[in-house]
Design a protein around this nucleic acid. Structure first.
Length: 557
RNA sequence: UGCCCGAUGGUGUAAUGGUAGCACAACAGACUCUGAAUCUGUUUGUCAUGGUUCGAGUCCAUGUCGGGCAACCA
């Protein structure tokens, strides 16, 4: 078993172990129940890995169920993207793809059972009055004047609600529980509302829709869910979840278990805020490579395995926490270090002229594709008199510990020659370096000196005439503070947007990259991991996204 | 001021009454044809106060701090 597949224990697994040992269940059934009103993000990935991971490890089943009980915000676009994302993450629900909307008829029957049992009533209060009667946490609520409406009248009104005789908000079906409960959710919650809205799956068949609290437990029960796992904010709903299932003649009573949702530094995670960024055009869409959405991470170049590994490492608890995004970055670096072919690419080019190298000569030098993986083989890289190097790799006046090119210093051109810097030319007006000069030692072909002398620095380069010009997108975090949600009075989370979250450059790439296909990942030596963009890369003219930079202990000091 | 939940190094997470461990991050060194990777080492922790116990991060009490709950959203 690979390290990444070894499950990390957590309190939910302990509950399941106990339930299995006690014989409460012979096997488990979980579910991932998204509402199709937005794209999935890395927080959902945590839930997906949890629920599907449990099913996998315990030889159980995990359903993919769309909780589509509110047509106003939902759309097939979201259904499709969610299906694609869960599958991309590497999970399979087999035949168990369900929609809450498929249970609407059944839910109405359960609602009528509740009415007949005197556990639900049709209320005529307006939304404003409803709120008024509910009271506040510190004060009990007041019973609705319609609380004791006769069963027959409730039944009749509910059926007419369904038949479309009333306007939105005119009536609502409520559970009859306890208006004095310290738990607001137990104060006769609404369970069915009138909503004349077009549903993406049921069309105009319905004009009443069940509320989450009524629907969710029934969906779970009907599907035979054993462990209904959700996030912490539903903890206060659990008494209602349990109460409801106790009132009705359902196939089973699943156990709701809550865990803490994922928070990431330098990131916002609410669907509302992500939608706002999309709508405002702050990002190019849900799959903008800077977004924490599954589609954004995919576009950026993250692999499913790296996201799964991240989810494995963060664990599952009930503690509200803030995970350092450095851990996510570590997970993708770790994978790509082992798998990504190395190439040379100059992101901020300046010309280097090897003054004693014959003009017009081109020789092919051998580069190792992946030092971590001998099977990756070697490739040929052209070398000539004029090259491009990184502007950062030359300093006219440099500190002592600067190992790259400075006048008089010898460095290695990776897989090329040892060269000694002899000077540079600068634009007389601006002082900007336009060309750097050096001489090479012909005896050092391939990068080693026969006399055994060592050089401290090795830099990457690309032959000027053979270089492939390409667009490279350098992404950085979208926000420049750890907690973008923390805003002062009157502020907005977008105040913390990082103005430099993307920088587009024209880079010089080694010619082998002309063969790169959309979705191919590479390590650009000394700079980072990159992927050819899935949408904008064309054959022979790739466009690269920087997934994550290499660690750089020099830049820090 | 009501109810529910939580609190272990900078961050995340283990330890289930018996040696506080792991990972990320940071720092230092070794190695290096990537200032990467790798290797070695270092710093930093049980929210507080009582109690139970031979023994408490763990159990109990009180307090403190943090989060959630007052959509006909999920």
């Amino acid at each position: 078993m690979a390290a990444e597949d070894v499950p990390v224990s957590n309190f939910i697994r302990e509950i399941i172990d106990r339930d299995l040992a006690d014989g409460k269940h012979a096997s488990i059934v979980t579910r991932f129940p998204p509402e199709p009103n937005g794209y999935l993000h890395i927080g959902h990935a945590k839930s997906i890995c949890l629920n599907f991971g449990l099913a996998r490890d315990y030889n159980g089943q995990c359903n993919l169920r769309f909780d589509d009980t509110n047509p106003s915000a939902e759309d097939v676009e979201y259904v499709d993207s969610i299906i694609e994302d869960v599958r991309w993450l590497g999970f399979d629900w087999g035949k168990n793809l369900f929609f809450a909307s498929d249970y609407f008829e059944q839910m109405v029957a359960y609602a009528e059972d509740m009415i007949r049992n005197g556990k639900a009533y049709v209320c005529t209060l307006t939304p404003e009055e409803f709120k008024e009667y509910r009271g506040v946490p510190t004060r009990p609520g007041l019973p609705s004047p319609w609380r004791d409406r006769p069963v027959e009248e409730n039944l009749d009104l509910f059926r007419r609600m369904r038949a479309g005789e009333f306007a939105d908000g005119q009536y609502v079906l409520r559970a009859k529980i306890d208006m004095a409960s310290p738990n607001l959710h137990m104060r006769d919650p609404a369970i069915y509302r009138i909503k004349h809205a077009h549903h993406h799956r049921t069309g105009d068949r319905w004009c009443i829709y069940p509320m989450y609290d009524f629907a969710h437990g029934l969906e779970d029960a009907v599907e035979g869910i054993t462990h209904s796992i959700c996030t912490l904010e539903f903890e206060v709903h659990r008494p209602l979840y349990d109460w409801l299932l106790d009132q009705l003649d359902v196939p089973c009573h699943p156990q709701q278990i809550e865990f803490a949702r994922l928070n990431l530094t330098y990131t916002v995670m609410s669907k509302r805020k992500l939608l706002e960024l999309v709508r405002a055009g702050t990002v190019s869409g849900w799959d903008d490579p800077r977004m924490p959405t599954v589609s954004g991470l995919r576009r950026r170049g993250y692999t499913p395995a790296s996201i799964r590994e991240f989810c494995r490492r963060i664990g599952v608890t009930k503690t509200d926490s803030l995970t350092d995004i450095a851990l996510l970055e570590h997970c993708i670096r770790e994978e790509l270090n082992a798998t990504a072919p190395r190439v040379m690419a100059v992101l901020d080019p300046v010309k280097l002229v090897v003054t004693n190298y014959p003009e017009g000569q081109v020789e092919m030098l051998e580069g190792v594709n992946n030092p971590e993986d001998p099977a990756a083989g070697v490739r040929q890289v052209p070398f000539s008199r004029e090259l491009y190097i990184e502007r950062d790799d030359f300093m006219e006046e440099a500190p002592n510990k600067y190992f790259r090119l400075k006048p008089g210093q010898e460095v290695r051109l990776r897989y090329g020659y040892l060269v000694t810097c002899t000077g540079c030319r600068k634009d007389s007006a601006t002082g900007v370096v336009t060309e750097v000069y050096c001489t090479y030692d012909p005896a050092t072909r391939g990068g080693n000196a026969p006399d055994g002398r060592k050089v401290k620095g090795t830099i990457h380069w690309v032959a000027a005439a053979q270089a492939l010009d390409a667009e490279v997108r350098l992404f950085d975090r979208l926000f420049n503070v750890e907690r973008p949600d923390d805003v002062p009075e009157g502020g907005h989370f977008t105040d913390h947007l990082n103005p430099d979250s993307v920088k587009i450059v024209r880079a010089k790439l080694e010619p082998s990259l002309a063969q790169a296909l959309a979705g191919d990942r590479f390590q650009f030596e000394r700079t980072g991991y990159f992927m050819a963009d899935a949408k904008d890369s064309k054959p022979r003219t790739p466009v690269f996204n920087r997934i994550v930079p290499l660690r750089d202990s020099w830049a820090k000091s």
